[in-house]
């Protein structure tokens, strides 16, 4: 089946871990947009949710760091963080091992992809699932792009990863929904945590909504680090979704800097 859904959202741990400290006038509509995104995904009756994420040293370290990795496990446990710190209770999330294996096999024609049959979810996936699939009953296929430990895959390759993902999803029988989750500008876990470059974010989101491949893949790491901080490297996850939706444009449903969440909180959807 053709891919049934493609969207993006934020995943910062403060969204659940420091929820009570955010301005309700911003927090509540943002969380409602996330829940609405979950409703829209379920309306497409997906067999699996494929989450392109940027994990934070939960599974992958600099002793053997894959640029791209996809999960093909029967289940995933999370969060790896302290549940009280994150504000999310431990969950076992169903996987879709057979489907994942077929997707990965097909994608390997175009992408040098690692795979994993063990994977612990960190906030990068658990925070989106908390809102999108609060019953944790939709099988998930995780995909990770290394956005933490340089050298990092270039944005142009992240776009190509998305294109390969789309081709593989379109080639199988199952209905697959795709969500990319990452920050735009942010300086997490530093004394600057809460700093957000709103104009840089809005420029990025305008390129994303236009699905302007040349503009999305023009970011250098030097420019991203300077203007978007360490967290800005996670734009790769959002660029991958644009690649999966090549030929379509999108809309930003919500964007607002919420400093205590340390990121410009975003919900967007491609019109695939």
């Amino acid at each position: 089946m053709p891919l049934v859904y493609a969207g993006i959202c934020s995943h910062a741990p403060g969204i659940t871990g420091r929820a009570e400290r955010a301005d309700p006038a911003l927090r509540d509509p943002f969380c409602q947009h996330l829940r609405d995104m979950g409703d829209e995904i379920r309306a497409e009756r997906p067999d699996a949710l494929l989450v392109v994420a940027a994990e934070h040293f939960a599974n992958f370290f600099m002793d053997n760091m894959p640029a791209y990795c996809m999960g093909m496990a029967d289940y995933y446990d999370g969060p790896i963080e302290d549940p009280q710190w994150l504000g999310i209770e431990p969950q076992r999330v169903p996987g879709a091992a057979s489907l994942a294996k077929r997707l990965i096999g097909r994608m390997m024609a175009r992408i040098d992809l690692a795979y994993a049959q063990e994977w612990k979810f960190d906030h990068g996936i658990m925070v989106p699932l908390h809102f999108l699939t609060p019953a944790y009953d939709l099988p998930v296929i995780p995909a990770n792009i290394n956005c933490q430990g340089p050298p990092l895959t270039p944005p142009a390759r992240a776009y190509e990863f998305g294109r390969a993902l789309r081709e593989a999803c379109d080639a199988v029988e199952e209905r697959i929904a795709l969500v990319g989750t990452g920050g735009i500008s942010h300086w997490p876990a530093t004394p600057d945590s809460g700093k957000i470059n709103e104009s840089w974010d809005r420029e990025f989101l305008s390129r994303w909504a236009a699905n302007d491949r040349a503009a999305l893949t023009a970011y250098s790491d030097e420019e991203t680090w300077r203007d978007g901080g360490q967290g800005g490297f996670e734009i790769r996850t959002l660029i991958a979704v644009a690649g999966a939706a090549e030929g379509a444009t999108g809309e930003i449903r919500y964007y607002a800097p919420i400093p205590i969440f340390a990121v410009g909180c975003t919900v967007g959807r491609m019109r695939i």
């Binding site: 530093t190 600057d192 809460g194 700093k195 901080g229």
Partner: peptide
């Protein structure tokens, strides 16, 4: 982290440098 910068000087390695050090808290 802010106290560490005052006591020990700038971040010596890695990506997690500070810029203006004025975050949300």
């Amino acid at each position: 982290m802010r106290d560490g910068l005052k006591l020990h000087g700038p971040v010596r390695a890695g990506l997690y440098l500070t810029t203006d050090g004025r975050g949300a808290v």
